[in-house]
């Protein structure tokens, strides 16, 4: 890890200004991803701009349209355990609580969570080819041990997975990301925030240089009656998802009025297929219907040998999580499969 200058930003404009005036600077939130990468010598900013005090650390404020605004500078834990989130957006709360560990969630900021980088083994090893780390060097994962890699939306240049749990729920909830930058503020709908690798695998998302995430807006519909987050991984906690599913349902008796399904652990971004959700509208909340929706969602899924299982696993996870959403009260800590 190299040394760097450390600057504290007093507010957002200050942060943007500081970022504009030095090359190779990085914002730092909780630091749980950035410092990890720096210690592995994978990120080398020469200036760190501490933005923890640039905006409010109060996790949640209510918005005029009946939704909520999450501060980008609040911690994951404060967000997940905020009474309004627990009450109105339990899906988000569960997803956040399924990620990392209690200690890390006490540090990680909401903004940083959106920008965490892939956990691809080859990305993390500075001495092997990786197009994301070093464009044009090749992708070691495609022919390597790719158990944790993507099955959807991949390209010949990169098959990495975006590892966040929180973002899977945010995708299902159709959140909006508010950013501020050298060219002023803008809002990005969640589906457009993260990118597929295509031929620019070095870009994880559409944030522009110098831009700062200030908040995340949640629309009023929180699916608080019927929701479920299911995370499948190699141990019961403190591990990244091999496949995760965020499901929110609006029911009328047995009949689905509105459905949201987002998949994690399978692609370079949270994976949503609106067509599958539309398919479910007006249908019974049954295993058969979720299975058909799963087929739509997983259209075009391809395995790379060691991750072939994810296709079948994702299908079963979608079905199971659909059924779990009918009984949110039986859900287990850690987003484990429940009855």
């Amino acid at each position: 890890m190299n040394n760097f200058d450390y600057l504290k930003a007093g507010d957002i404009q200050d942060a943007i200004g500081k970022s504009g005036s030095c090359t190779d600077s990085s914002y730092i939130g909780g630091g749980t991803n950035l410092l990890d990468l720096m210690k592995y010598d994978l990120a080398h900013p020469t200036t760190l701009i501490d933005i923890n005090h640039a905006g409010t650390q109060d996790a949640v404020t209510e918005t005029e349209n009946g939704g909520l605004r999450l501060s980008a500078f609040a911690t994951n834990a404060d967000t997940a355990w905020h009474p309004l989130i627990e009450e109105k957006y339990p899906l988000l709360s569960k997803a956040i609580l399924a990620g990392a560990s209690a200690q890390i969630r006490n540090m990680a900021t909401n903004g940083g969570n959106l920008l965490q980088r892939t956990r691809c083994y080859y990305f993390y090893d500075a001495n092997v080819p990786c197009n994301k780390r070093e464009p044009g060097s090749g992708c070691s994962a495609i022919l390597g041990y790719n158990r944790i890699m993507a099955i959807l939306g991949t390209s010949e240049h990169c098959i990495a997975v975006f590892p966040s749990d929180m973002c899977i729920a945010l995708a299902a909830l159709e959140a909006t990301v508010n950013v501020e930058g050298p060219n002023g503020p803008r809002s990005i709908v969640f589906a457009d925030f993260h990118r597929l690798p295509g031929d620019t695998p070095e870009l994880d998302n559409n944030l522009l240089p110098g831009e700062i995430i200030t908040s995340i807006d949640l629309p009023p519909q929180g699916f608080s009656d019927n929701y479920s987050y299911l995370k499948l991984r190699d141990r019961n906690s403190y591990a990244f998802a091999l496949v995760s599913v965020a499901t929110g349902l609006e029911l009328d008796g047995d009949i689905i009025r509105n459905a949201r399904i987002a998949l994690g652990g399978v692609a370079h971004k949270p994976w949503r297929v609106p067509e599958a959700e539309e398919f479910l509208v007006g249908k019974a909340a049954s295993e058969e219907n979720f299975a058909q929706a799963a087929d739509i969602i997983l259209r075009g899924a391809t395995g790379y040998q060691y991750n072939d299982f994810k296709i079948e696993l994702a299908k079963r996870a979608i079905i199971r999580n659909g059924m779990m959403a009918l009984h949110p009260e039986t859900q287990l800590p850690g987003a484990l499969p429940s009855a």
């Binding site: 041990y145 190699d234 141990r235 906690s237 403190y238 591990a239």
Partner: peptide, 29 residues
């Protein structure tokens, strides 16, 4: 059920040289 060192035979190296990916049991296990 948990631990294994992942080898990449093309590269001749271990790929999960850390405790996030070398899975030893957590309390929840």
């Amino acid at each position: 059920l948990r631990e294994e060192t992942i080898q990449d035979f093309n590269l001749g190296k271990y790929m999960n040289q850390n405790l996030a990916e070398y899975h030893i049991p957590v309390h929840a296990d």
